[in-house]
Amino acid sequence: GSVVKEKKEKALIEVRPYVEYYNELKALVSKISSSVNDLEEAIVVLREEEKKASEPFKTDIRILLDFLES
């Protein structure tokens, strides 16, 4: 629970300088966080969101995924 939350919060802070739609990304992460149990599940849902998103938000999600998977 809290470790996953920390990882996601740290990821958002780390990617902030590189993303165009930070507030939207943060809102998406919050929405996903409330419906998943762990980081792996969150990553799966983020990948689905990435497929549906259009640029440049798609790239923002990709940047976040790269950080979460590192």
Rank of each mutant, 00 (worst) to 15 (best):
V15C: 14
E49T: 05
S2P: 05
P56G: 06
V44W: 15
V45S: 11
K5N: 13
A53M: 04
L64R: 00
V4H: 09
K7H: 11
V45P: 03
E49I: 04
I63G: 01
R16S: 05
E9R: 06
K5D: 14
E48R: 14
E69N: 11
E50M: 14
F67T: 04
R47I: 08
K7R: 11
I63R: 03
V44P: 06
N37K: 08
E24Q: 11
Y22P: 02
V45T: 06
R47H: 10
K51C: 10
L68C: 13
F67L: 05
L64E: 00
K5P: 05
F57W: 10
K52P: 00
S35W: 15
V36Y: 05
S70M: 11
N23K: 08
K8E: 13
S2Q: 10
L68G: 00
L12V: 02
E40I: 07
P56E: 03
E41A: 08
R16L: 12
F67Q: 04
L64K: 00
A42D: 04
E49K: 04
T59W: 14
T59N: 13
S33Q: 05
G1A: 12
I13L: 10
S35I: 12
E50K: 10
V3G: 12
A42Q: 08
F57M: 02
R16H: 07
L65R: 05
S35E: 12
V3Q: 09
E14H: 13
E24D: 06
D38L: 08
L46Y: 02
L28N: 00
A53K: 03
L68N: 00
V15M: 02
I63S: 02
T59P: 02
I32T: 03
E40P: 07
E55K: 08
L68S: 01
I43A: 03
A42S: 06
E50P: 00
E48I: 14
E24K: 14
K52Y: 09
I61Q: 00
E20L: 15
K10V: 09
E9Y: 13
L25F: 02
L39C: 15
S33R: 04
K26T: 09
L46P: 00
S70N: 11
I63K: 04
E50Y: 14
K31V: 08
I43Y: 08
V45N: 08
S30H: 13
P17V: 06
E20Y: 15
E55M: 13
E55C: 12
E69W: 13
V45R: 13
K5E: 13
E49R: 04
E55A: 10
E14N: 08
K26F: 14
K5I: 11
T59E: 03
K52W: 08
P56K: 04
I61V: 04
A42V: 14
I63D: 01
K31F: 12
A11W: 14
I13G: 04
F57L: 02
V45Y: 15
S35V: 11
I43P: 00
P17F: 06
S54T: 09
R47D: 02
F67V: 12
Y18V: 10
E49P: 00
K10H: 10
V29Y: 15
S2G: 08
L64P: 00
N37Q: 10
F57Q: 01
N37R: 09
P56V: 04
E9V: 06
T59G: 09
A42L: 15
S35D: 08
I63V: 06
E41S: 09
I13Q: 13
D66S: 14
L65Y: 03
V4Y: 10
S30E: 14
V15I: 12
Y21N: 14
V3Y: 02
E41V: 05
E41M: 08
S33K: 03
A42K: 02
F67P: 00
E14L: 09
E69R: 14
R62I: 03
R62E: 02
A11R: 02
K5C: 15
K51P: 02
P17H: 06
L39G: 04
L25N: 00
N23L: 14
N37I: 06
R16K: 12
D38P: 04
I63N: 01
V44Y: 15
S33M: 14
A27Q: 07
Y21M: 14
Y18R: 13
T59A: 12
L46N: 00
V44I: 09
K31N: 06
L28F: 04
L12Y: 02
A42M: 15
R62C: 07
A27C: 04
R47W: 13
A53D: 00
V15G: 02
G1Y: 00
L46E: 00
K26A: 13
K5F: 11
I63C: 03
L25Q: 00
E55P: 05
A53S: 07
E24H: 07
E24G: 03
R16G: 12
E50C: 13
A27L: 11
R16I: 13
L46S: 00
D38T: 13
S35K: 09
R62H: 12
E40L: 07
R16T: 04
V15W: 02
F67I: 05
V45F: 15
R62P: 00
E50N: 05
V44A: 10
L64I: 03
K51D: 10
S30W: 15
P17L: 06
L64S: 00
V29E: 00
S30C: 15
I43V: 07
A27R: 04
A42F: 15
D60W: 15
E20T: 15
S54D: 05
K51Q: 10
L46G: 01
K51Y: 11
K58W: 01
E6D: 14
S30P: 01
A11H: 03
R47L: 06
Y22Q: 01
E48S: 13
S34I: 07
E69V: 09
L12E: 01
E6H: 04
Y18P: 07
K31S: 08
V3H: 10
S35N: 09
E69P: 03
L28R: 01
S33C: 14
E48H: 13
P56N: 03
L68R: 01
E14F: 12
K7Q: 12
I13F: 06
V45W: 15
V29D: 00
N37L: 07
I13P: 01
S34C: 05
V44C: 11
S54C: 09
L12F: 03
V3K: 11
D66G: 12
T59D: 03
N23C: 12
L64A: 02
R16D: 09
V29C: 12
F57G: 01
V3C: 15
S30T: 12
E9M: 12
D66F: 15
Y18G: 09
E69C: 10
A11N: 03
L64W: 02
V15F: 02
A11L: 10
V36T: 11
D66I: 14
K8C: 15
G1D: 11
N23A: 13
V19A: 02
I32K: 03
F57H: 01
I43F: 11
A42N: 02
I61E: 00
P17G: 10
L46W: 03
D66E: 09
F67K: 06
E9S: 05
K31C: 04
L39T: 07
K58A: 09
V36S: 06
D60T: 05
E20W: 14
L65E: 00
Y21R: 08
K31E: 09
L39V: 06
D38I: 08
S33G: 05
L46H: 00
Y21K: 11
I32D: 02
Y22G: 02
V19C: 08
N37W: 14
Y22F: 12
K8W: 15
G1E: 10
E50Q: 11
L64G: 00
E20Q: 15
Y18F: 13
A53T: 08
K52D: 05
S2Y: 01
K26D: 05
V44L: 14
E69F: 12
D60H: 08
